[in-house]
Design a protein around this nucleic acid. Structure first.
Length: 271
DNA sequence: CAGTGGGCCTGAGTGC
DNA sequence: TGCACTCAGGCCCACT
């Protein structure tokens, strides 16, 4: 589920509300993708100083250490007081003086990891190889272009890989390529300057727009207040196989790349 | 070394 | 109604 916009929308929905809170208890359900690291009891008494985002990770900063939260494919967070008793898919509760932060994740591809800091080997392993932040100032066309050109991997998979730029997942990769007029199968190294410029701009444009719209709710995504996103209704190609292209009317095509589906318009995306 | 594909999990949907 | 199968927003890692 959650790509960069959903994670950012989630962050914004509870960062203020949790700031300054002190952890009073931790509850864990079934194991998640990675172990918490240490005893949950070590979190009790810590206070939350803020919430940042790096790629698709949320970094819950504590007065000592940091909590890395990843939503995987099916995760979502809630932050509220008086949450109901945990259900079978609520696998982590951080109970604080200002409310409970709860991770709901049926597929359990998500994780909550407690690390001493970002430099802690456990955290560094997860955050180390990440590419540029697309919504930050370091996301220059120059660096992006160099990163992309260095590989012959199809551009769709290059974007998903996160080594050059983070946060572009399966939905937004298709949308970004549509706006840039590039086919998903195009080898990264074969993208020339004109299309590279459009691709770079489209990444920012699509992700910013998605954040404004609260992300995409395909099935069950909601932010920490329980609100749904609406970007999916604006998708040009994702999930629209056979439907007419919103620009030219040509039926949208689907294909599979590395076990993931990609969608594109054969007319608007010529090569 | 770059690149591909399996695997982690559960639930929803489809076709028989 | 039940079963077998496919697919779903991500990402690590073993293999070629």
């Amino acid at each position: 589920m959650p790509e960069l916009p959903e994670v950012e929308v989630t962050r914004r929905s509870f960062a203020q509300a949790i700031a300054g809170a002190q952890v009073t208890a931790v509850r864990m359900g079934k194991p998640l993708r990675w172990p918490l690291g240490g005893d949950g009891g070590a979190l009790v008494g810590r206070s939350v100083s803020g919430v940042r985002r790096r790629g698709k990770y949320l970094l819950v900063d504590l007065d000592q250490g940091v909590l890395l939260v990843h939503l995987g494919m099916s995760g979502s967070l809630r932050f509220a007081q008086g949450l109901p008793p945990p259900g079978p898919h609520d696998h982590f509760d951080l109970v604080t003086t200002q409310g409970t932060l709860r991770l709901h994740d049926p597929r359990r591809f998500g994780a909550v990891v407690h690390a001493a800091g970002e430099a802690d080997p456990v955290a560094a392993k997860l955050l180390g190889g990440l590419g540029m932040e697309p919504l930050s100032d370091d996301f220059s066309l120059d660096a992006f272009s160099r990163g992309i050109k260095a590989s012959r991997v199809p551009i769709k998979q290059m974007l998903l890989g996160g080594k050059v730029v983070v946060g572009v997942g399966n939905i937004y990769a298709s949308e970004v390529l549509f706006l840039s007029g590039i086919r998903p199968q195009t080898p990264s190294a074969r993208i020339g300057p004109a299309r590279m410029g459009r691709l770079h701009a489209a990444i920012r444009q699509v992700l910013e727009r998605a954040v404004e719209l609260g992300g995409s709710t395909l099935k069950d995504f909601s932010n920490a207040d329980g609100a749904y996103g609406s970007y999916q209704a604006h998708a040009n190609v994702y999930g629209r196989e056979g439907a007419p292209c919103k620009v030219c009317g040509t039926p949208i095509k689907a294909l599979r790349q590395g076990q993931r589906s990609s969608y594109f318009c054969p007319r608007c995306q010529r090569a």
